[in-house]
Amino acid sequence: MASFDARPRHVETARRVTASVLAEAGVDDRETVETVQLLVSEIVTNAIVHGNADSVSFQLTCDPADEVLIEVDDHSSGFPEVREAGPDDEGGRGMRLVAFFAREWGRKGTCTWCTVPVRPVAL
């Protein structure tokens, strides 16, 4: 589990940690790695913007033959919403991306989680 200050600059840190964890776990499908990084970015950004704590924690659990579990704890009692952002809105699309790309997603306590299927690398 990684924890960091709830500051926007740490979204990129979360993406780098994600790439490292996936590489260590043997997840080498580029599309899977990019999808997991995107969803980590969106959920961590949501936690920073809408959470009410000084820190955010996230954890990745990998089964390279099945899926990646992303868990982000924002220490907030709120529930993320899938919104319909207008064409001129600068935000409001993050959870829609999570709902689209994740196998499943939800909220448990103060933690938003989602799963991403791991695509096998074609030989």
Rank of each mutant, 00 (worst) to 15 (best):
V44F: 03
A47L: 03
V82Y: 02
A102P: 03
G26S: 07
E84W: 11
V116E: 00
P117H: 13
G92Q: 04
V121W: 10
V11N: 02
Q37I: 07
C62L: 08
T61D: 15
S76I: 08
D88F: 09
T61L: 14
S77R: 12
R30W: 06
V27W: 05
G106W: 03
V121D: 10
D89N: 15
A2V: 11
R119I: 07
C111Y: 04
V44G: 01
D88P: 03
E90H: 13
T32S: 03
L69T: 13
I48P: 00
L123A: 15
C62M: 09
D89V: 08
I70P: 00
D88G: 05
A6F: 02
A65Y: 11
R107E: 04
E104Y: 07
G109H: 08
F101W: 14
Q59R: 15
G51P: 01
H75D: 04
W113G: 00
A19R: 08
T45E: 09
P64F: 06
T35R: 04
N46F: 07
P64A: 09
S77G: 13
E42P: 01
L38T: 04
R83K: 15
P64N: 06
C111I: 15
P64L: 05
E67I: 07
C114A: 10
T112H: 03
P80H: 03
A19I: 05
A99D: 14
K108L: 12
N46V: 08
G91P: 07
R103N: 14
V98G: 00
L39M: 05
V49Y: 09
V98P: 00
M1D: 09
H50L: 09
R83P: 06
A99V: 09
T35G: 06
R30E: 13
P64I: 04
T110I: 09
N52W: 08
C114G: 05
S20M: 10
L69Y: 10
G109V: 05
N46K: 12
G94P: 02
P117T: 13
T35N: 06
P120C: 08
V56Q: 03
T112K: 02
A65T: 14
G91R: 12
T45A: 10
K108H: 15
D66G: 09
H10W: 04
P8I: 15
G106K: 08
Q37S: 11
L69E: 15
M95W: 10
T115C: 02
R93M: 10
V17Y: 07
P80K: 01
D73P: 09
A6M: 05
T35E: 11
T35F: 03
T35W: 05
I70D: 01
S77L: 11
Q37W: 09
R103S: 14
S3Q: 12
A19Q: 11
V98R: 00
P64E: 05
F100C: 12
T45F: 11
V33S: 01
V118P: 02
S77H: 09
A99L: 12
D28P: 05
R7P: 03
G78D: 11
E84I: 12
V11T: 07
R15Y: 02
C111D: 05
D66M: 11
C111H: 06
R83H: 09
A53L: 02
V118C: 07
V68R: 00
L60V: 06
D89S: 13
E90F: 14
W113Y: 14
T45M: 10
F58N: 01
V40P: 01
V68A: 03
G26W: 08
E34W: 03
V68T: 06
V11L: 06
F100D: 12
V118K: 02
E84K: 14
V82E: 01
